[in-house]
Amino acid sequence: MIPIDPQTLRVQQHFVRHQPALKAFVLALAPGFADAEDVLQEAFLTITAKAAKYEEGTSFFAWACAIVRFKLLEHQRRGRRTTGLSAEVLAALEASAPPVTFFEGRLALLEDCLDRLPERAREIVRLRYHGEHGAAEIARLLSWTPNSVSVALSRAREALRICMRGHLGEVAA
């Protein structure tokens, strides 16, 4: 019997635990949902293969983000859609990426903040992020103009950021 390599198991567990934050990291850099999934999947395989190189006690999230960035670049080299951002910019953004707690803390607040959105804004957010429709498709579904959908999405996101800041301020206080 070959036992499960405990280090690989631990690293996979870290990945599973941090997957929402890693996904948010990928989507920030490569906003297309399908592309982000491809990148995340490839990153998972690489992270599993390189599990022995991860040093327990260091930031798994930072280690994984570096791998994700390289996967993004590989995607771009293969001519796939991901992000138009250059390698230099991706490196700079990775270096200044917030810690995992930034993502996890905000994710925990989002459901409540979504409930506080006006109904129309909530519906547009649902179509964009649950339905995975682009602005043009949402415009067609709602008989709006694409520009008005973009504006509404932008306002909804801003309202959510304000809501989360309010929550985080309450927590800090």
């Binding site: 948010a24 989507l27 949902f33 992020y129 649950h130 959510l160």
Partner: peptide, 26 residues
């Protein structure tokens, strides 16, 4: 983004929400 650390912070503040919303919406 390359010239300003503040711009990168703003990027993360705004762009992270995009990814988190996908997860939260699901």
């Amino acid at each position: 983004l390359l010239e300003s650390e503040a711009a990168r912070r703003q990027f993360w503040e705004e762009a992270a929400l995009h990814g988190l919303l996908h997860e939260a919406a699901k």
